[in-house]
């Protein structure tokens, strides 16, 4: 008993543990309430998703860890992680998951939530701006290639105006174009 009620003793770990009471226990329910999050709690941490992932070897948080973090309520860590934005959306994790957890879709949901809170990496924000301004991500620049292939210099019938209007008046415009 003396060991447990004395406050003088040195900390058991040098690293301060994550205090669960500071986390957001409702995060799990929030993700679960989204159409793709239905099977979130089915995860039993087999790490199949991480084994399948072609990019996770350079991630700090592996896919299975992201799922665990959602379940534990580590909302800020998940939504500010770079990993959710680096996902290649190859859907390997989701295809292989033995418990039918929609891992990729859940990562999409996280991106949407992060975007709503303005937590968007600069590169992604720039892409979104480009879309808003030009209505397309890849503008034709090297037209000599088209010339060599006997194609017209401009894409025939390309009209980005309607698309830009849609983007401006929907979420993309609201989140990144609001100045």
């Amino acid at each position: 008993m003396t060991e447990t009620d004395g406050s003088e003793r040195p900390p058991a770990t040098l690293i301060e543990p994550i205090d669960m009471s500071t986390l957001d226990a409702s995060f799990r329910r929030e993700i679960q309430s989204m159409p793709d999050g239905d099977e979130l709690s089915a995860c039993f941490a087999c790490t199949t998703c991480t084994a399948a992932c072609p990019i996770a070897n350079q991630w700090e948080y592996k896919p299975h860890q992201l799922i665990r973090m959602i379940i534990l309520g580590m909302r800020d860590e998940v939504l500010s992680s770079k990993e959710i934005w680096e996902c290649l959306t190859c859907f390997q994790c989701q295809e292989r998951c033995p418990q039918k957890v929609r891992v990729t879709d859940i990562i999409f949901d996280c991106k949407n939530l992060a975007a709503e809170e303005g937590k968007i990496p600069d590169a992604i924000r720039n892409l979104a701006r480009e879309l808003l301004e030009k209505g397309q991500l890849y503008v034709i620049t090297a037209d000599w290639e088209r010339e060599d292939l006997d194609l017209e210099p401009e894409l025939p019938g390309l009209s980005t105006e309607e698309f830009k209007t849609i983007l401006r008046n929907t979420r993309t415009g609201r989140i990144v174009g609001g100045e």
Binding site: A12, T13, I15, E16, P17, I18, D19, M20, S21, A45, T47, H64, Q65, R68, M69, L72
Partner: peptide, 15 residues
């Protein structure tokens, strides 16, 4: 209770 979560490699403190 302080738990070591080996999947996250983090220490978690529960009440």
């Amino acid at each position: 209770v302080i738990v070591y979560d080996s999947l996250l490699d983090r220490y978690l403190k529960f009440r």
